[in-house]
Simulated assay, not measured.
Amino acid sequence: MPADEIVNQKRALRAELKGRRRNKPQILQDRETAQLTAQLQQLVENLEAHSLSAYLSAPTEPNTRPFLNWARAEGIRTLLPISRVDGLLDWTTGDGETEAISDLGVPEAVGELLGPMAIDEVDLMLVPAASVDVTGMRLGWGKGYFDKMIGSMGKCPPVFAVLFDDELVDEVPRERHDEPVDGVVTPKRVVLLSKRAKALGLAEA
């Protein structure tokens, strides 16, 4: 398939998913937030993770805020990304309260910059996604930050994308630079997608 056709397919799918997220009723969002928090907590406990990377969710994304509060209260070291102009990600632990809106229009933590290599220390990575397919291929939001990060890591910890339940699909458009994830976490379940994830002996929710 021509590259420009794949790009157009991605653009159309992202627009559809954004619209679906914006139209989600608040009462459903609240229920799914509580469910998602429980699923994320269970994954961390099953992996016995002492450190992880995550992100501050935007208003229409699955809400990671209660989970991040739980992780901080449990003493789990949590790195949060800060985008750079060179396409890499810096990391910070933040203070649990202060944040800013990045040039990309998404919320980012504010704190001491730890550098791109800080991510090498974590036991688990939680990343945003528009959609993921059953092979683990992730459709991001088009900036490439997380694909570049995952692809550059020599020893990458398990990577799980955080989605709504209907965003795990049969297939998503793929370009050469796209990187797969090991599994997904949704409000209703944890799904293991890679051989590496299944070898961890985790029970799917």
Results as ranks from 00 to 15, higher is better:
60 T>G: 09
78 T>L: 14
70 W>L: 01
67 F>D: 13
86 D>Q: 08
79 L>I: 03
68 L>N: 03
63 N>K: 03
50 H>L: 11
69 N>R: 15
73 A>W: 02
71 A>S: 11
53 S>C: 07
58 A>C: 10
80 L>I: 14
80 L>G: 13
90 D>Q: 07
74 E>N: 11
91 W>V: 07
71 A>H: 12
58 A>H: 00
79 L>W: 05
74 E>D: 05
88 L>T: 14
77 R>S: 15
63 N>V: 04
87 G>D: 10
82 I>V: 12
54 A>F: 07
58 A>D: 09
64 T>W: 06
60 T>E: 15
75 G>Q: 01
87 G>I: 03
50 H>S: 10
61 E>K: 13
73 A>H: 00
60 T>K: 10
63 N>M: 04
56 L>R: 13
61 E>N: 12
57 S>E: 03
57 S>D: 00
53 S>W: 07
70 W>A: 04
65 R>W: 08
51 S>G: 06
52 L>G: 10
85 V>A: 14
58 A>R: 06
91 W>R: 01
70 W>P: 05
86 D>R: 06
81 P>C: 11
72 R>D: 06
84 R>F: 07
74 E>F: 02
91 W>I: 05
50 H>A: 11
60 T>Y: 15
69 N>H: 15
90 D>I: 05
54 A>D: 09
91 W>T: 05
79 L>Q: 10
67 F>V: 10
63 N>T: 06
50 H>E: 07
90 D>F: 00
65 R>H: 02
67 F>N: 07
80 L>E: 15
80 L>R: 10
70 W>S: 01
67 F>Q: 02
55 Y>L: 08
88 L>D: 12
59 P>F: 08
64 T>D: 08
50 H>Y: 06
64 T>H: 00
53 S>L: 02
87 G>K: 01
64 T>M: 05
89 L>Y: 04
77 R>L: 15
73 A>E: 10
58 A>Q: 06
69 N>G: 15
59 P>L: 10
83 S>A: 10
84 R>E: 12
71 A>I: 13
59 P>Q: 12
90 D>M: 02
75 G>R: 09
50 H>V: 08
87 G>E: 15
88 L>Y: 11
85 V>I: 11
72 R>V: 09
87 G>N: 01
52 L>C: 00
91 W>H: 08
60 T>V: 13
74 E>P: 04
57 S>Y: 07
50 H>C: 05
51 S>M: 10
79 L>K: 09
71 A>N: 09
66 P>Y: 03
79 L>M: 01
70 W>R: 00
78 T>A: 14
75 G>L: 12
